[in-house]
Design a protein around this nucleic acid. Structure first.
Lengths: 217, 217
DNA sequence: CAGTTCATGTGAAGGGTCCTTACATGACTC
DNA sequence: GAGTCATGTAAGGACCCTTCACATGAACTG
C-alpha cells in the first residue's frame, strides 16, 4: 500500500530503489542543506523501511559520494556544452562558460552542495575523483585555448589561470548565488559580477576580446 | 585531561558556562563539521547536564550564531591588523590582507565554518550582521584606498572590486586551504595562488605596485 | 548578619529520529 | 516446483531535543 514517490503501486520490491534514493537525497539536500540529510529520511521519502537503503549503499557517505559524482558529471557536461570547443570565438565562449557555472550552482543547488560542501574526501572513490577532474579539465582546456595565440613569452600558466577562474566562480557561487535566503545583498547579479571579474582578470593577463575580433568574429 | 574544561573543581554553578559552551562548540565543529555538532554534546563536553545550555541560548542556532558573530569579529580584527591602515604602503598592505584572510581560514577552521557554512540567515541577529559587515568593510576600505590616487575617470567601483577580491579569497579558502584532508592538490600554496590572482586582477584594473613606489616606498 | 530573590544548574521524562541486526519475502534459475 | 539470492521489513537500542518542577548558592537588602 505504499505508493512511493510516484506512479503506480509497488509490491514487496521497489524496483528501482537506488535511483529513488538518489532523487530523494537531492530533494532533501536542496531543502535542508547537505548536513540535514539523513539515510532514514531518504528511505521514508522513497517509501521503504529505514533499513532498505543499506542494500544499495554501504552508508550515508557512499550515497553522498554517488550524488556528488553524478553532480560532477552533469556539471562537466554543462560546462562542455557552454564552452562548445570555443566556438565560434574563444572569448565569447569563455563568458558562456562562466554563466554556465553559476547557472549550474543556482539551478542544481543540491548537486552543488554535494560536490563542494559535504567535506567528503575526494579520494573516496576513483569515479568521484575522475568526475571532478573532468569538470575541472573543461575550465583548464578553455584557459589553454584562450591563451594559445599569445606570444610564448607572455603566456601565463594555464593551470594557474584555471584555478583562479574556478576560485572566483566558486566564491561568487558560494557567497551570492546560493539558495533563496541567507546571503548578502548585491548591487548587481552574480552573473554580472563574475563576468566583470573575469574580464578584469583576463585584462590583467593581457588576454583581450581583441583576440576574438582578430579571428574575424 | 580536564574534561570539564575548567581548572579546579566546580560547585553547583559552573561559573562561566557560556564561554565553556562556545569553546566546546568550536572544538566540536572543528572535529566533526558544522553539522555534526549537537547541543547535548556541547553540554557533556562542558561537564553539565543537557538542559543547562538552555539557560544561555534559546537553541542550537542561537549558539551557532553567537559563534559566527565572534568569528566575524575576530576575522575583522585580524584583517584590520593586517591592513593596518594601508601602512607603510597600500599595495604591500593589500597583499598582507590576502594572506591574513587565508591564515584565518586555515588557523580557525571552526570559526570559518560557523561563519560561512552553517546556512544561518545573516539577518538572524543584528549583531551577527553587523560583525559580518565590519569584516567586509575592511576589504572594501582597503580597495578604496588602493584606487584613491587613480584618475577619477579610470577608477573602478570599489564595492565591485572588494566583492571580487572577497570572492576569490573565499573560493581559494574553500577549495584549497581548508582542513587537512579532502582537497585537491595544488602546484603552489594557496597563499601564492591568491597573491598571484589578486596581482593579475589589480593589473587588469590598472592598479599597480608603482603606486607604492610613487609614494616613496 | 539573616532573609529574600533570582540566575543558574539538575534530574527525569516525553517524543522524536537515527542506525543496525536478525528475519521475511518473492523474483529468478534450473 | 524447489533452491538461492537480492531486496525489503520489523524491532530494538541509542542518541538527541526540549520542557518541566525542583535544587542551589550568590548577590542584594535592610
Amino acid at each position: 500500500m505504499n505508493w512511493s514517490r510516484n506512479d503506480g503501486p509497488r509490491g514487496y520490491h521497489h524496483g528501482n530503489l537506488k535511483e529513488a534514493l538518489i532523487r530523494a537525497a537531492l530533494e532533501l539536500i536542496a531543502k535542508k542543506g547537505p548536513g540535514g540529510f539523513t539515510f532514514a529520511e531518504a528511505a521514508r521519502f522513497a517509501g521503504v523501511s529505514p533499513a532498505a537503503p543499506y542494500r544499495h549503499f554501504r552508508d550515508r557517505d557512499e550515497l553522498l559520494a554517488d550524488v556528488a559524482r553524478r553532480g560532477f558529471e552533469a556539471f562537466a557536461a554543462a560546462l562542455e556544452r557552454a564552452w562548445d570547443g570555443g566556438r565560434p570565438a574563444p572569448f565569447a565562449a569563455f563568458e558562456r562558460l562562466g554563466r554556465a557555472y553559476l547557472a549550474f550552482a543556482r539551478s542544481e543547488p543540491a548537486y552543488y552542495s554535494a560536490m563542494f560542501e559535504t567535506g567528503l574526501p575526494v579520494e573516496m572513490s576513483p569515479e568521484l575523483q575522475a568526475a571532478g577532474d573532468r569538470a575541472f579539465a573543461v575550465i583548464r582546456t578553455a584557459a589553454e585555448r584562450l591563451i594559445a595565440d599569445m606570444p610564448a613569452g607572455r603566456r601565463p600558466p594555464a593551470l594557474m589561470m584555471a584555478l583562479h577562474i574556478w576560485s572566483m566562480s566558486h566564491g561568487i557561487a558560494s557567497l551570492f548565488a546560493r539558495g533563496d535566503a541567507g546571503r548578502r545583498a548585491l548591487p548587481m547579479s552574480p552573473e554580472e559580477l563574475l563576468e566583470a571579474g573575469v574580464l578584469v582578470y583576463l585584462q590583467g593577463l593581457g588576454v583581450s576580446a581583441a583576440s576574438d575580433r582578430d579571428r574575424g568574429k
